[in-house]
Structures are given as C-alpha cells and as structure tokens.
Design a protein around this nucleic acid. Structure first.
Lengths: 251, 251
DNA sequence: CGTATCATTGAGTTTTGTCAATGACGGTGG
DNA sequence: CCACCGTCATTGACAAAACTCAATGATACG
C-alpha cells in the first residue's frame, strides 16, 4: 500500500474521445466478478470500488480500494482476475475491451499507458504484500491509515474511513476484533483521534508512520530479516516511501 | 502462488532476432536491485532467480522465484520495482530497455505480450497475497510445495526445493522455525517424504492440496470470511486452481 | 577432520484468533 | 416522536498460532 499509494494513472487522453459510456452502481453492486469475461475497463468518476478475491474456503482478500480517477479492471486477460464491488454509489466510464483492443493496434502510446497502469497495479499489490507479510496488526492498521490519509481529499489530517472494520480486516489479513483493538490502541496512545468510528484524525503522523514502516514497538514482526545482501538503505526513499506521493492538503 | 503458477509467458518470437545478449550470474549475484534504473528485461535460459523486496526495517519479502523460460524485470517503469538475485548459477538473455522501447513503437503484438506478462506477474503476486493473507503456516507451506511441485521438471512427485527454509520463510511470511516445523509435521503425517532436507516427495497430493486451499484442519486461518456476496463456488476452477497449469509428468 | 551453515527441536512468550457479551448508531414503523 | 431492531464496533476472557531464544543435529566444504 500503502507505502506507495500511487494512484493508478488515469486513462490517457487519447482514450477519452472514444466511445465510453458512463455507468452507475449502487453501494454493494458489483462492477464485475472474478472469472467473468472481460467486457470493459473502467475509470472511476465518483464513488469508491473495492477490489478483492475470494479464496476457496470463502475468505475474502481485499486487494485495495479505488477512488475517483483510478482504473478498475485493467488486467489484460480474457477474464477478470479479481472482483470489483462499489462500496458507495459509484459512476465510472467504461471503455469496452473491443474498443481498447482496436486502439491498441494503432497507438503505441496507449499501450505504454496500459503497461504503466498494470505496473502501478502490480506495485500496489506488492506493497500490500509487504505490509501483510511482515508487519504486526498495529503496523498493518497504521499503514492502512497512512494510505487512506494520503489519498483522501479531505483536509489535512482528518478523513473518513472508506472501509468498515471488517473490510479493513479483509484487506490486512486480520480479524475485525484485531483491527478494532489496534484502532483503540492507536487512540489511547494519542496517535489518532476518532470523532466517530469512521472519522479519523491523525494526531502524531510521525509516530504512525514509524509504526507503519519502521522497526520496533508494534511494527515489525520478528522474521528472518535476511539483510545480508540487502541494500535497503542505500537508495534514497523511492516511491515505496509512504511519505511520498502524498497529496498536498486541500485548501 | 501458488495457486496459479502460470509461467510468465516467454518473450514473443518477434523479440528473439533482435539484439539480446546472454549474461551469466553466479549464485547470490544480483541481476538488479530495486531502485536501479531499468537497463533491460531478462528471459531466464537456465538457473533460478528470486524476486524480492526489502522493507525499511530489513525484512525481506520474497515475491517469487523464476525459472527457465520466465521473465524477470518486466515492470514498465524507470526503475526496477523489485530486486532480483540468482539462487544458483544462472544465464539469461537481456533485451535492453531501449531496444524494447523501440520495438514497442511498431509492434502492437509485442505490447500485448508485455501486457500479458505484466498481468501474469500481477496474478502471481495476487496469489501469494491470498496465501499469506489468510492461511496458517502449514497451509502456506503446503501451497508453496504444491507450487514447486507443479513447476518442477522433475519426475512426477519428487522435486528438489529451490529455496532454503529461510527463503521459504521470507516468501511465506513465516520464520525459519515455523517453516521447519510445518515441514516436519507434513512429514510425520505422511503427506510428504524428505529424502534430504531439500528433496521432497509428495505422498498424498490430495491432502496437501486440501491443506493448501481448502478449509479446515491446518488450512484456513479464521478470518472474517465475508461470504455474503461471494460467488466463489459459482465458477469452475479457473487458473487460480492449484491443480491446473500443472506440468505433465516428464517421462 | 574441523568448521560453517542450515535445519530441527524444545521451552516459554507474545500475538492473534475465537467466542461471547455489551455498546453505539441509524433507520423503520407504530 | 420514540421504541425497536439490525448492523457494526468494542471489550473481555480464553485458546491457538506463531515468534524468540537457545541448544542440538545434519550436511557440505575446505
């Protein structure tokens, strides 16, 4: 995630003049399910869409949430690789797969945009993997909050959570209860404030950031940590750094 | 992973006649590091390469391992998004980024191949996320073994592990000890046999598969499991199914 | 044959999941 | 308008899973 939070680049301008219909969904309606034949790719105009997959045992793994301007359904395949469900009333422009394919033949620029978008999608998934693979509950929740905060259009440090506790759990590989406990812990520690259960104010961003990505306290879950060859500090913070790609406060 | 294990499609033939130099690395040598400017993309000719990222706290998350015929370094970006290190002596054909970019302008087919390869990469990461996000240690190790077994060129049910316990841990979000204990448990249960610590024979594939993806016993970690909208059983097994894309036994 | 590395195993601690009860909130219908 | 109800969130007590630390075994290499 988190970390990166690079918004999927919007479709290139080249695509806009082409036939693209605007569709609407109510909250909880699906744009498509995993396995459906790919009919179109979507650019969200308003609302929010959750991307997820369901395991055979019924467990749901949320891969992320997409907001206005972001792309949904861009895997280049015959069938969708994930499911997409609106989590609030949503509208999106749909570019049909047929149209896309036609344009792709004559427009190398579009192909590059698609490749970039796919790369961005890949990075997001990778970021989530980093968070889930090696951080404790509080670190995961911290990373999640940082991410939402960075992507929210709200005023600087207060934002409305787009996901319920349960959805956050499905995103972070935790149970509802564990998410809830992590939130209260952050609240008790004065790191965040909760006006309502879904309205977060970050009070100590540096601390939250440290929990999200640094070692120590509640953050890193002891693991192999094979640093032998690791040059992780050798590079300047790149786009994986949570502090980057942060939207400037809206005034 | 796992699950899918779809080999990244090799570069399309169109690319082969173009300038591509074969390079070699010893075990533990890096093809590139995360953050390096992208110089080339690679098709492995022989050997094995581990793809990973290192978190700020030093934890390493292995994203996967790539074998002969698979692509490495295909993110379409200015810098590599992951690190790649040979885990045995490896040779690969390198197509420079400049060459690729040149070809991309005139060959929509190549662009599609790249998009497919990126989609495949994305799916692999997603599969790993599914495994790590919701399965217990034994389920993760089972999934890992199934994956290796499916991809190994060895005779049917015996194969050599390409990763050490520690590397498996870094792949699965577990410690060395937990991986080791899971392996021992599988052995004691008669599900696998270990001729040597790195030579596995699958004795009860169905059981192993169940552990890897089904509910119950050591498999599913209790989590939200929001099945409400889930149509996970509605589709026939797709490429996410571990049993598919399995290489036929080599005779 | 020693040494280094990797794997295994055990004991104890920490984290997280499970189950159950309670609380908060919003919407509906009387 | 208010009581009721359903959903979501919180909290507590306990159990299970995974990590930590430490010791021992196995294996390969020089």
């Amino acid at each position: 995630m988190f970390a990166t939070s690079v918004a999927s680049p919007a479709l290139p301008e080249a695509l806009w003049p082409v036939p693209a219909s605007t569709l609407r969904w109510d909250s909880q309606e699906h744009l498509f399910h995993e396995g459906d034949p790919v009919s179109a790719i979507f650019t969200i105009e308003s609302g929010a869409v959750v991307i997820y997959r369901t395991a055979r045992d019924g467990c749901r793994q949320i891969h992320g949430i997409r907001f206005q301007g972001e792309l949904v359904g861009i895997g280049y395949n015959v069938t969708y690789g994930v499911s997409a469900v609106a989590v609030r009333p949503t509208s999106a422009r749909a570019v049909s797969r047929a149209t896309l394919d036609r344009l792709l033949d004559n427009d190398p620029t579009l192909a590059r945009q698609m490749m970039r978008a796919l790369t961005s999608e890949l990075r997001r998934t990778s970021n989530l993997l980093m968070v889930i693979g090696s951080r404790t509950a509080i670190g995961r929740v911290a990373a999640c909050l940082i991410d939402f905060s960075n992507r929210a259009a709200d005023s600087d440090d207060t934002f409305v959570l787009p996901l319920s506790r349960g959805e956050m759990g499905d995103l972070l590989g935790l149970t509802i209860e564990t998410v809830s406990r992590a939130m209260t812990r952050l609240k008790v520690l004065g790191i965040i404030a909760l006006r309502r259960t879904d309205t977060v104010t970050i009070r100590k961003r540096a601390t939250l950031l440290a929990l999200a990505e640094e070692d120590g306290d509640g953050a890193a879950r002891g693991r192999l940590c094979a640093c032998s060859e690791a040059r992780c500090t050798r590079y300047p913070p790149n786009e994986m750094t949570t502090t980057e790609n942060r939207r400037p406060p809206v005034h």
